[in-house]
């Protein structure tokens, strides 16, 4: 019993962690390009889930299409947000920009409440098979989907940034906006791409999570908080760090609930965040250390 319980906790932790990692990657995409903490990231996830449900249950599209279609839609939402609210503010304070994303997240949540009401919605699991037994524990097949999708998305983004022209241009913008601009890269366009990609990653997370999480209009907020925690833990802006941070938060939560207290499981994750900030403030995987010169 003891071992199988541990295996179960770890599997649950990895599944949750994969979701947080996807959230963290979404935060990173916008952050590295623009320096903005995008508070609408959780709403991207919510939209992904709700749109998938809408496509499947109300438009009666096939499940695979219902999961993929929202990605494009939310990418458009992300790009739209950049064009309508972020671009006009490009000369403002960074904090003002961050507050604009807060306003947008409120508006998106309100809109979702109008469109879908306050209810949660179900979506069938992607593959209709029995739970998989593993070393005395059992895993929901959808959890395997979550882990797989997170891994594929992470790899795809890494390849995108390393080998594609757009990806490399975005990397350049993130590193030195002025230099990138001088090299002929259109920084604003790259920023728009960052928002679109963040929307896409959010929608992927939302759709793959929907059969497990039963999305409602307000599902984004708490996910975003934990995703942000994961991003900081891993070192904000660092995508390998996002993966590590996500898994860490997921495992802390699950093992914390299993061995310490289910009531305080979230507090444990945040406590570790505080400790990491004191000991290694740049995050687990970031190398640059900015100590005060004084």
């Amino acid at each position: 019993m003891e071992w199988s319980a541990l295996v179960q906790y770890v599997l649950t932790g990895i599944t949750q962690g994969a979701i947080y990692a996807l959230l963290a990657v979404g935060f990173n995409l916008v952050y590295s390009a623009t320096g903005i903490i995008n508070f609408a990231q959780g709403e991207f996830v919510m939209l992904g889930g709700m749109l998938a449900v809408t496509c499947y249950s109300f438009l009666h599209l096939p499940l695979w299409l219902s999961a993929i279609l929202p990605i494009g839609v939310v990418m458009l939402v992300g790009a739209g947000i950049h064009q309508l609210a972020i671009r006009p503010l490009r000369h403002a304070h960074l904090v003002t920009l961050i507050m604009a994303t807060v306003g947008l997240s409120v508006a998106l949540r309100g809109l979702a409440k109008v469109l879908w009401g306050a209810d949660s919605y179900p979506l069938p699991a992607f593959s209709n098979v029995d739970p998989v037994a593993l070393a005395g524990a059992s895993v929901d097949p959808q959890s395997l989907w979550v882990m797989g999708v997170a891994a594929v998305t992470g790899t795809a983004l890494t390849l995108f940034f390393r080998y594609s022209l757009t990806g490399r241009a975005m990397t350049a913008c993130a590193a030195r906006p002025l230099a990138a601009c001088l090299a002929g890269i259109r920084v604003e366009r790259m920023n728009m791409w960052a928002f679109a990609l963040a929307g896409g990653v959010g929608a992927i997370a939302g759709a793959v999570l929907a059969p497990i999480a039963l999305p409602s209009f307000d599902v984004g907020t708490s996910l975003a908080l934990k995703g942000f925690c994961a991003a900081i833990l891993g070192g904000i802006g660092n995508n390998a760090g996002a993966l590590l941070g996500g898994l860490l938060v997921g495992l802390l939560e699950s093992l914390g609930a299993g061995y310490i207290s289910s009531g305080y499981k979230d507090a444990i994750a945040f406590l570790v965040l505080l400790i990491v900030l004191v000991l290694r403030p740049q995050g687990l995987l970031n190398v640059t250390m900015r100590r005060d010169e004084s």
């Binding site: 019993m1 319980a5 179960q8 906790y9 599997l11 649950t12 932790g13 599944t15 949750q16 979701i19 209810d119 949660s120 524990a137 999570l209 497990i212 999480a213 039963l214 409602s216 307000d218 599902v219 907020t221 708490s222 996910l223 699950s254 609930a257 299993g258 289910s262 979230d266």
Partner: peptide, 30 residues
């Protein structure tokens, strides 16, 4: 569990370990 948690297998695994004759769940959707 928290109202917006998406997975309760950890808590249920713990309950299962205590070998109850019945499980009572008190909460509202989802």
């Amino acid at each position: 569990f928290e109202s917006k948690d998406t997975d309760m297998t950890t808590q249920l695994t713990k309950l299962k370990g205590a070998q109850p004759e019945a499980i009572v769940c008190w909460g509202t959707n989802p």
